[in-house]
């Protein structure tokens, strides 16, 4: 069983982009109305959805993840430009049979969708079409931000999905593309930046009314090192 970690993660100094993860402070919850961003993570079995959400919510790569059955939930409170935001991540089962009747309840009112594929497995990429249909089938509004994440890019020798192919696909579907590795500790900040990027966008939506989504489309964020990440993965909004 996956062990969700609530609000774990050290207090970091605010980065240039004004992002910092904060410990979940329940006492504060009572007084401040915290906005909640609900993100659903979907994609084929074994592409690393659970590990990605762990990386973001818990900071570490779990060495023994199992198949997710149904839907797992993790969350993390972050601070963006002075506002505390609770990011809820719903991690779903990859096997097809769980998608239809089981998971639909969890598509309700999602603020963003993260599509994950495995860069070392072409079928997980070609199946994305089906995942997009699935997402549309659950009546996720077209303006809900979607990002595409190619995981396991630490396995350089085995890469089957070239970046330019993924980029083309992301362009066509109005998504941002990230290539990363949930496993590589050097990439951990990059994983965080994917979710933070979404959170930033969601925060900005209030005023920007989705214009941002159009402007940013198709910009690949290839995350190679933490240093690069700091410069590249800054809040896009």
């Amino acid at each position: 069983m996956a062990q969700p970690i609530l609000g774990h993660g050290s207090l970091q100094p605010a980065s240039a982009a004004g992002l910092a993860s904060l410990e979940l402070d329940s006492s504060l919850d009572q007084y401040v109305q915290i906005r909640i961003f609900k993100i659903i993570v979907i994609g084929d079995s074994n592409v690393g959805k659970t590990c990605l959400t762990f990386r973001f919510c818990g900071g570490t790569f779990p060495d023994k993840t199992e198949a997710t059955i149904g839907v797992d939930f993790r969350e993390k409170t972050v601070e963006i430009e002075g506002e505390k935001i609770k990011v809820q991540v719903w991690d779903t089962a990859g096997q097809e049979r769980f998608r239809k009747s089981m998971v639909e309840h969890y598509y309700r009112n999602v603020h963003a969708v993260v599509f994950v594929y495995d860069v070392t497995k072409m079928t997980s990429f070609t199946n994305l079409k089906m995942w997009i249909q699935e997402c549309n089938g659950h009546a996720v509004p077209p303006l809900v931000p979607k990002v595409l994440v190619g995981n396991k890019c630490d396995l350089r020798e085995q890469i089957q999905v070239p970046s330019n192919l993924a980029l083309k696909f992301a362009d066509a579907h109005n998504m941002l593309l990230f290539e990363t590795s949930a496993k590589d500790p050097k990439e951990s900040q990059n994983v965080e930046s994917i979710f933070m990027c979404l959170a930033c966008r969601l925060k900005a939506q209030k005023s920007l009314l989705y214009r941002d989504a159009e402007r940013q489309q198709g910009k690949v964020q290839k995350l190679e090192s933490p240093q690069e990440a700091n410069s590249k993965a800054s809040c896009p909004c």
Binding site: M1, E66, I69, G70, V71, M102, Y106
Partner: peptide, 16 residues
Amino acid sequence: GTIFALSWLITWFGHV
């Protein structure tokens, strides 16, 4: 919902 109990049911709690 009831999905929290899905893995309980279909694995007879073996998964959890």
